[in-house]
Simulated assay, not measured.
Amino acid sequence: MAEPPTTYQVRAQCRPGGVAHVQAGDQTVPIDTAWGVEPSGAPGPAELLAAAFASCLMKNIERTSTLIGFTYTSADVRVQARRQDSPPQFVEVEYDVRIVTDEPERRVDLLHRNLRQFGTVYNTLAAVCDVHGTVAAATAEA
């Protein structure tokens, strides 16, 4: 028997002029919902989606490190999401992961396969747009 889906909830509020925030977990994050004015500096919906994707990658790095004993010192994740105007939708998500590790290349490749296979946000976006990227190992600088 399949387990029921996990449910996540956030709460968002806005006022005229684009003043808004979203509550997720025990954090409140300001968001930019203004239209036709200079950006406020707070993330907008597109940046939040890219941030969710980056968070998914990092959570799965941690998951994989626990499950297969993959050791790393740090990871730097960069995500670029590309959208089109008509129809309005994301068409591409590209990522670059630099992970500081002494693991051999075959284990880095295994980590990357795990990121692609077990990421909920990754798989959701990959179902509707082109998702691709790289995972590369770097050595710690002395």
Rank of each mutant, 00 (worst) to 15 (best):
R15Q: 12
P16V: 12
P16H: 10
G17C: 03
A20S: 15
A20D: 15
G25M: 05
D26A: 12
P30N: 02
I31F: 04
D32E: 07
W35A: 12
G36H: 14
S40Q: 04
S40H: 00
G41K: 07
P43H: 00
P43D: 00
P45N: 00
A46G: 13
E47G: 02
A50Q: 03
A51K: 04
A52P: 10
A52S: 15
A54Q: 08
S55P: 01
S55V: 01
C56A: 01
C56E: 01
K59R: 11
I61C: 08
S65R: 13
S65C: 09
L67K: 15
L67E: 14
L67H: 11
T71H: 13
S74H: 07
D76K: 11
V77W: 07
V77E: 14
V77R: 03
Q80C: 14
R83S: 06
Q84E: 14
S86Q: 11
P88A: 09
P88C: 05
Q89T: 13
V93W: 00
V93M: 15
E94A: 12
R98Q: 14
R98N: 13
V100D: 08
V100G: 08
T101S: 14
D102W: 05
E103W: 03
R107S: 15
V108D: 05
V108C: 06
D109Q: 10
D109T: 11
L111N: 07
H112V: 10
N114L: 13
L115C: 05
L115I: 07
Q117G: 05
Q117V: 09
V121H: 06
N123R: 14
T124C: 02
L125K: 01
L125S: 00
V128Y: 01
V128S: 13
C129T: 09
H132G: 08
H132F: 15
V135L: 12
A136P: 07
A137H: 04
A138M: 08
A138L: 08
